[in-house]
Amino acid sequence: MEADHGAVHLLFPQAERRGGTGARRALLAALHADEATIRTLYERGDTGERLTILTALPELGLGAAAIPLVEDALRTNDARLVAAALGPYGARWLDDHAFRQGVLKCVFMEIPLASVSGLDRRTDAELTRMLSDYATERRAAGRPVPHDILERI
């Protein structure tokens, strides 16, 4: 990989199949914060590859540069990707609006709020209002309000 910069694109998709658990993460670490390559790996990745990248982001030394990848994951309808987008990296770098929308999306997708990184630190009056309005909507429809919402409003 050091000698051939294209090699990672061949290795990354099949890394876990051939190299076992953790092989993809090791490849990412060996890229030394090469943001363009990591972005291409994400864009060309299947769900498993994207999940590995999203969860590894805090260790890759990219600063805020990988936020477009997190935003892409938040636009999907896959609970695994949305949950991974709201890991430590998303909690550190997402702006307030995007973070609140991400939290609400977790509520709709039944992803427990306990899995959202930095939620206590990032919760503000606006997010509390949004959760409270959600609870009102649920009650109006005669549906139960999830416990993890009730304890935050």
Binding site: N77, D78, A79, R80, F108, M109, E110, P112
Partner: peptide, 14 residues
């Protein structure tokens, strides 16, 4: 399994 046992059993429209 889709990898998350809390992912629910319906397709949610987030």
């Amino acid at each position: 399994s889709a990898g998350l046992d809390y992912a629910g059993n319906t397709i949610r429209r987030g």
